[in-house]
Simulated scan of single mutants.
Amino acid sequence: MKILDILTEKSVITELKGKTKKQVLEELIDAVLEHKPQLDRSRLMAVLLERERLGSTGIGDGIAIPHGKLKDLDQLVLSFGRSTGGVDFESMDGKPVHLFFLLVAPENCAGIHLRALAKIARLLKNSAVRKKLGSVSSREEIYSIIRQEDEDF
Rank of each mutant, 00 (worst) to 15 (best):
E9A: 04
L7H: 05
S11H: 07
H35P: 00
V47A: 14
E15K: 09
D61A: 04
V24N: 07
L4M: 03
S42E: 14
T14F: 00
R41H: 15
E50P: 12
R53M: 05
L39M: 13
E52D: 10
A46G: 12
A46K: 15
D30H: 07
I3C: 05
I29K: 06
P37I: 10
G58E: 04
G55H: 10
L7I: 03
T20G: 02
R51K: 13
E50I: 03
L25D: 04
V32C: 15
L54H: 11
S42D: 15
E34D: 07
A31I: 13
E50G: 08
S42M: 03
G18L: 00
E27M: 07
M45N: 11
G55F: 06
L28K: 09
V12T: 03
L44A: 15
P37L: 12
L33Q: 09
D40C: 09
R43V: 10
K22F: 00
L28N: 08
T57L: 05
I3F: 02
I3V: 12
E52W: 02
L49K: 11
I3E: 01
G18I: 01
L54R: 13
L28I: 07
E34W: 11
Q23G: 02
E15W: 06
V32S: 08
E26P: 10
S56P: 14
I13Q: 04
R51H: 08
I29N: 04
L28M: 11
G60W: 13
Q38L: 10
K10W: 00
E9T: 09
S11C: 07
E52R: 09
L44V: 15
E15Q: 10
L4E: 06
